[in-house]
Design a protein around this nucleic acid. Structure first.
Length: 596
DNA sequence: AACGCATGCATCC
DNA sequence: TGGATGCCCTGCGT
């Protein structure tokens, strides 16, 4: 039915002088705006300055042309009652629609529209390229105030802190050399990740479709995905504190589930939509969720601002729903304090993170409200002392409060970091490194791309939140998608990443792997033969074996040894596309052979 | 290679 | 307060 906007433009621009000669007064005048020198036309002059009559009309093509009018064809009211059709061949900025400049990628570098404020810090006067925060993440970071006024939280915090907080910051592990295993696991984008509390190799992943993956990342071929637990987005998952084979998950389908990790057998603990779909104003979705082991309670919150409590012993609702954020707004995050079981942190779309005493959960009774300029994607107490707070807001800022006993009126630091909202991406969340005793290392994916040797890549950033310094950025040339979901391993030097539909595991390379990396192997793909191909130990590119249809490709991947089989998890670049797969194969000292 | 689409939040009135 | 509208670095399928 409708032609695409570019169709008529392309047609006219390619054949500007082929206008048919038949005239028809009934057809309006067609005006073409040529693309004059883009430099000089930066002033917003009359749109018509270079207009030119192309052709006036063509009966048989008449209808077609009318249909072809796309967005770049503007109609103007005309003195003759006919509306001339203006076709713009000028290059127009796709952001502001003005001429004289163009926004978009030039190679791997994104050129900003100069009419818009900085994409990164949102301030006018410079572009994203020249933003001072882009050069130095710690730019403009306000040092923490040393005020340590006693506040109400001190009285809530009855317990002792962990006695040992190291005075000197130990060197945290920064992945200089990382090794990345890749797997396409989900059919929709990944929304959350969770490491198993005791099994070091086990990872949970949830996706937008409601599927839950249980993944041993040393056995990538053993794929377990449960698709019948939830019907849409899995927003948060936790292991049961009393039975680490059980998974709790909160979903936008309005249920919270309890699932046996081994069997996939699941029972919904709560269903907020028992009557099914009653319109968008009635459909409840569950977002933030956390478990308080000491209180035997699952806290879960919905998209209307309400908090629900479930008892983990009976798996039943306990108490009434409490309005903890603005009525009608989404509560996206809940976190129980790791040391003080009476403290709960919530955050949501009303631009607040709030601290609660769960012994007094009544609407409006929050102990503190931490104001943000935009939606708060996440808010976490620090993992060891529970004293600090780290939040991620959609205003492109990470905020840190150094002590919940200090002045909570304003954050100790605001770190400008690119993690903008995009409706097609899972919201970014800065997460603490649970292994860092100084509680200063956090990980978060970056929205904005950087030009890495000609490829636009979106790194995963490690930020020292005590200074705002970017201490590491993790990239892989094969991962060109944005990685909003990141989780650091509670014990190992492992980072799990969810990027679009794929999952990645990053870990520092060991010496063996570094040595192997230098050995540039080639994959020889052999098809159409049952014969074992012969290979020379040198020059394996030479293709003198006529029995074998053989092509040679280089590929990048990770070698795993599983049950004495060599498994290569690899990326192939074929026909302009990257393919990810994992295969078992022979291993030859000089190259890998895959018989298909 | 160039579209089209999925669909959350801010902003406007 | 609520409905309409429009989006800036998406990602994937056609």
């Amino acid at each position: 039915m409708a032609f695409t906007a570019s169709t008529p433009i392309r047609k006219f621009s390619k054949t500007p002088n082929m206008a048919p000669t038949t005239r028809s007064l009934s057809f309006p005048r067609v005006i073409v705006e040529k693309d004059t020198d883009s430099e000089q036309s930066s002033s917003e002059e009359e749109e018509n300055d270079d207009e030119e009559r192309l052709h006036d009309e063509d009966e048989e093509e008449n209808g077609k042309h009318s249909e072809n009018e796309g967005q770049r064809i503007e109609e103007e009211s005309n003195n003759k009652g006919k509306t001339p059709i203006t076709i713009s061949l000028k290059k127009v900025c796709k952001v502001c629609k003005r001429t004289g400049h163009e926004a978009g990628f030039k190679g791997a570098t994104y050129i900003d529209c100069p009419m818009k404020p900085c994409f990164l810090c949102k301030m006018p006067g410079h572009t994203t390229m020249t933003c001072p925060h882009r050069v130095a993440t710690e730019f403009g970071v306000i040092p923490a105030s040393h005020k340590n006024t006693r506040n109400a939280l001190l009285y809530v915090f009855e317990r002792q802190f962990k006695p040992h907080i190291p005075p000197i910051k130990p060197a945290y592990v920064i992945p200089d050399q990382v090794n990345c295993a890749v797997i396409r696991y989900h059919s929709r984008r990944v929304t959350c990740l969770e490491f198993h509390p005791t099994n070091n190799r086990l990872l949970l992943s949830g996706d937008k479709k409601g599927q839950v993956g249980v993944w041993d990342y040393d056995k990538v071929h053993e794929k377990v995905v449960y698709g019948n637990i939830h019907s849409c987005i899995v927003n948060n998952m936790r292991f049961s504190p009393t039975n680490d084979g059980m998974i709790y998950a909160a979903s936008s389908d309005g249920t919270i589930s309890c699932t046996d990790m081994e069997t996939g057998i699941s029972s919904p603990l709560m269903n907020l939509n028992p009557d099914g779909w009653q319109g968008p104003n009635n459909w409840r979705m569950l977002y933030g969720m956390d478990i308080n082991p000491e209180k035997h309670t699952v806290f879960v919150a919905d998209n209307f601002g309400f908090l629900y409590l479930l008892d983990t012993r009976s798996n039943n609702r306990s108490g009434q729903a409490v309005l903890i954020h603005k009525k009608g707004s989404k509560v996206v995050g809940l976190h129980c304090n790791p040391l003080q079981p009476d403290l709960l942190l919530s955050c949501g779309n009303d631009h607040f993170a709030r601290i609660w005493d769960i012994r007094q959960l009544v609407a409006g009774s929050s102990l503190y409200d931490l104001a943000h300029r935009r939606v708060v994607n996440s808010a976490y107490f620090s993992p060891n002392s529970g004293c600090k707070i780290l939040t991620t807001s959609q205003d492109n800022r990470i905020r840190v409060w150094d002590s919940i006993f200090g002045n909570l009126d304003s954050p100790s630091r605001e770190i400008v970091h690119s993690h903008d909202f995009n409706r097609h991406l899972t919201p970014f969340r800065a997460e603490w490194d649970p292994k860092d005793p100084s509680e200063s290392l956090a990980v978060i994916g970056r929205y904005i791309s950087e030009n890495y040797n000609g490829i636009a890549l979106h790194p995963i950033d490690f930020i020292d939140v005590s200074t705002g310094q970017l201490v590491a950025e993790v990239i892989d040339p094969n991962i060109t998608t944005i990685s909003p979901v990141n989780k650091l391993h509670p014990r190992d030097d492992v980072l799990a990443t969810g990027s679009s539909r794929s999952l990645f595991i990053w870990r520092p390379k060991d010496d063996h792997e570094l040595a192997e990396q230098k050995d540039e192997r080639k994959i020889v793909i052999c098809t159409g033969t049952e014969k074992k191909p012969k290979h020379k130990s040198k020059n394996d590119d030479s293709d003198d074996d006529s029995d074998v249809d053989k092509s040679t490709l280089t590929a990048k991947g990770i070698l795993l040894e599983i049950n004495s089989l060599i498994v290569l998890n690899f990326w192939l670049h074929i026909g302009g596309r990257y393919m990810n797969s994992y295969i078992c194969m022979h291993l030859n000292p000089s190259f890998l052979v895959l018989v298909m």
